[in-house]
Design a protein around this nucleic acid. Structure first.
Length: 277
DNA sequence: AGACATGTTGCTCA
DNA sequence: ATGAGCAACATGTC
């Protein structure tokens, strides 16, 4: 599930519950995969008794800062979720990490185990965090930067290029399709074939989809929706993309599906055309 | 039963 | 050296 806005949603969920609280217990489960980057004894010692100071997201990553210079990184992978349970919570099958405070248990659950937990000790945040590309909502995300990136990746389908975290941090499969759909660009178009006005449309669609997704899904600090996607409007491609026989909410025409850039892709042929066809 | 899944990485090949 | 494409990862669901 988790792309940009869903990651923000989960991050806020943990933070709202436990900011300023002390971790009294650290429960870990799987150690082979999700916790593979951790020195478990060091990790436990640093987090036990530490207080959660701040939480942030960038791209699909999360970074939580604790007292004592302890930094906890979380990537939700394909199926990861963060939830809040009573402090008596007994870890279920795929609860890989549970942080217990006096009032809550912070639970990281991930059945497919593509997620990851990172840990860093020090005054400064870890390198992998500071090296994340500037957010799509930032001033550094310019049309010129997008144009240059598309030129470098000119032979790849634009769909595949949108999934590159080094330029489109936080964009995942459904957001990439949503962006292309808004911009009216066929996902199989070679990135280098986009005309300047199309690059502009793509840039605007990136900003708009990210901003609106954060607003609808994460609530931007307001009371968050109980159900992740409950507030995504029916006018988005999102709600129609998976259903067989789904129709474009803009044109009412049938949607198309294919594998592009190695990923299942959905588009509206009525408004996203290939020049040759 | 088999296909498929909202992500990333590491490999091969050009 | 750089970029494109694909298998692999582990498990659950339709």
């Amino acid at each position: 599930m988790p792309e940009l806005a869903e990651v923000e949603f989960f991050c806020q969920r943990w933070h709202r519950a436990a900011a300023g609280q002390r971790i009294v217990r650290v429960l870990t489960h799987d150690r082979k995969k999700i916790l593979r980057h951790l020195e478990l004894p060091v990790f436990r010692r640093a987090l036990s008794g530490a207080t959660l100071l701040s939480s942030a997201t960038a791209a699909k990553q999360m970074l939580l800062r604790f007292t004592g210079g302890a930094w906890l990184g979380i990537h939700l992978g394909m199926s990861g979720e963060l939830s809040v349970a009573p402090p008596t919570h007994t870890p279920r099958k795929h609860d890989h990490l549970v942080l217990v405070t006096d009032r809550h248990a912070l639970v990281f659950n991930d059945p497919r185990m593509f997620g990851r937990v990172d840990f860093h000790l020090g005054r400064e945040p870890p390198h992998w965090w500071t090296e994340i590309a500037p957010a799509i909502s930032s001033k550094a995300f310019t049309v010129a930067a997008v144009a240059a990136f598309l030129q470098r990746r000119r032979r790849a389908p634009i769909k595949a290029v949108l999934l590159k975290q080094e330029r489109f941090p936080g964009v995942g499969n459904w957001m990439a399709d949503e962006i292309l759909w808004r911009a009216g660009i066929h996902p199989a178009r070679p990135a280098g074939s986009l005309q300047p006005r199309e690059v502009g449309a793509l840039w605007r669609a990136c900003r708009r989809v990210c901003r609106d997704a954060l607003d609808k899904i994460a609530g931007r600090g307001r009371t968050p929706p109980p159900d992740l996607n409950a507030n995504i409007p029916r006018t988005w491609l999102f709600h129609h993309r998976w259903r067989r026989g789904g129709r474009c909410p803009k044109t009412g025409r049938p949607l198309a599906h294919d594998t592009i850039g190695g990923r299942t892709t959905c588009w509206s042929p009525a408004r996203q055309k290939l020049p040759s066809s």
